[in-house]
Amino acid sequence: MSTSLLEVEAINSFYGDSHILFDVSLTVGRNEVVALLGRNGAGKTTTLRTIMGVLAPRSGAIRLDGKPIGGLAPFQIARRGLQLVPEERAIFGQLTVEENLRLAALTAPNAWSLDRVYEFFPRLRERRRSGGRQLSGGEQQMLAIARALIRDAQVILLDEPFEGLAPLIVRDLVRVSRELAAQGRTILVVEQNVVAALSFADRVYVLNNGHMVWEGRPAELRADPALMKAHLGI
């Protein structure tokens, strides 16, 4: 696919001596929302961490807009417009909401204004002087996504954005994610909440034990209960 913005080609990743990813390949097209599904420990988070450069792949290639980014430091990859929103959210608890956002905007060439971010997440405007550690789980997740937005990231890697959140907040975040996709942002999302992920993904990959085992459309996956049961345990 010539319009692929993000290409991952046969990467192998390790934590110390344990081999986690085996020749994993995937592509994410421009303006596409791709979900990466799989059971706990399948290697989903490791895939995102490897793309972000937090973990260096031992072999294989990663390209952003056709240019290799494998082996670069996370800060260099972030400056090329790719942004990981980690599973643990990693909000700076000692910094206020606004400081978290200003920090994220520091090195972004086309950083959004704070106002534009607050229009997206009005709740964050109300909480802008609160310390990160005072935020609820949902607010922390909004802030984590907002940090990617203020950087005007072209590709956003969302790691379990709905984990541990109340259904109402999940619905809200799904709406935001759909809006982002409609705006033409490219998203690769990892989720345990398969239903929520399928509700806004264009395409789906399934990982199992570090191997990519399936690729297709959400409708095809929904129509295949055996596959869902085998690899996702649903």
């Binding site: 972000m52 996370p74 972030a78 942004q83 990981l84 990693a90 700076f92 520091l106 090195t107």
Partner: peptide, 13 residues
């Protein structure tokens, strides 16, 4: 001081 790794992920050297 809180999380040097995340500062890097946000594009800062």
């Amino acid at each position: 001081i809180e999380d040097a790794r995340m500062v890097g992920i946000l594009g800062i050297n």
